[in-house]
């Protein structure tokens, strides 16, 4: 049985990913946030939520291919 919470989290994650790919990071962040508020153990939503926050602060180049470049020191 798949519970309704999980289903909703997955729906929100998919919606967030669509927005993310379109560089709508603020809107995407809202979706990811909703997802991990529903299920705080949902790591993928947290991961991409964090990336949205990063890109809101530091918008990616025009050639951005959707791949996050890890900031290494």
């Amino acid at each position: 049985m798949i519970d309704d919470t999980k289903r909703e989290v997955l729906r929100l994650f998919a919606a967030g990913r669509e927005l993310y790919k379109k560089r709508a990071f603020k809107a995407a962040l809202e979706k990811f946030k909703e997802a991990y508020t529903l299920d705080p153990t949902d790591e993928p939503s947290k991961l991409f939520g964090g990336r949205c926050k990063h890109y809101i602060q530091n918008p990616p180049d025009d050639g951005w291919d959707g791949i996050f470049q890890m900031q290494t020191k």
């Binding site: 997955l10 729906r11 994650f13 998919a14 990913r17 669509e18 790919k21 993928p44 991961l47 991409f48 959707g66 791949i67 996050f68 470049q69 890890m70 290494t72």
Partner: peptide, 19 residues
């Protein structure tokens, strides 16, 4: 949803491979 998860995983794997 499956494709969204796969896409996310793909991103993540590529990102890790680059680093």
């Amino acid at each position: 949803q499956t494709l969204a998860a796969l896409g996310g995983l793909e991103d993540e794997v590529k990102n890790l491979l680059v680093s």
